[in-house]
Amino acid sequence: MGRYIVRRLLQLVPVFIGTTFLIYWLVWSVPGDPFAGKCGDRPCPDNYIQVMTEKFNLDQPLYVQYFTYMQNLLQGDFGETFGGRSINDLIAAAYPNTIKLAFVALAVEALIGLTAGVLTGLRRNGFLDNLVLVSTLFLIALPTFVTGFFLQYLFGVQWGIIKPTVSNPPSFTELLIPGFVLGSVSMAYVARLARTSIAENRSADYVRTAIAKGLPMRRVVGVHLLRNSLIPVITYLGTDLGALMGGAIVTEGIFGINGIGREVYRAIVTKEGATVVSIVVILVLVYLVMNLLVDMLYALLDPRIRYE
């Protein structure tokens, strides 16, 4: 197990270098001169463009820019935006909010999704099963911004129960609705995944054996059935955290959450390579680490899985 983890951690290094370079290159090849549209409907003065080009090494070839960036990054310095703000500060301010939001969303989808999945998986074709099927179909069909605007209008404007936009830094209660919006589609998937998995394993040999042994139903479901059925669900939830963090841009915009979504969007549009890479690098790391955790959870859930 130890060697396995070390090997997996070492794999992170080439993945890390590869992704950062790819992203840097992609941003660099986005068409458009970063200073062409900066001064509105007139060209920027020469001296401004000169000072900026020199400061950000924009006249250097791509690989030189990338190496300068990596050199600073290894010293813990993410660099500066074109506006002169430190990217370290920016990340420190924005990331915690996005992480908070992603975890609320994850909690919502795990709690509601799993409960619905387990209940319907055990009692198929009942009223509850049909209700969950229809409502998850509905949620999957709705894009996030529709759910977002609708709930914001209903709770924030019409009923006045919540503030339409959150304060900074947002509290967990304020993030409940945004978290629900962000997690709603995944929640539907989790419910359906759990339902299928439970229903399938319900008729498996080991479950029948457990029931035949006379184990109480609670134990059969809680220990034997659930543990085995959770593997696909955990895989989904684990990788979904990364997707939730990266995909929060719409939700963050609707509820005015100061997260990374806005910064990534702004940086891509203005061709600020350093900002995009810095933010995405952390996302990549989260993604890789979550994958590793999920893989290790398999071994805990299913004794048959061993890592060498």
Binding site: F149, Q152, Y153, K163, T165, I254, G256, G261
Partner: peptide, 18 residues
Amino acid sequence: VKMYQEDTAAYADLQSGN
């Protein structure tokens, strides 16, 4: 001066008195 990413978020705040 509150900074918004989306003018629709600001509009929801305006309607609700925030």
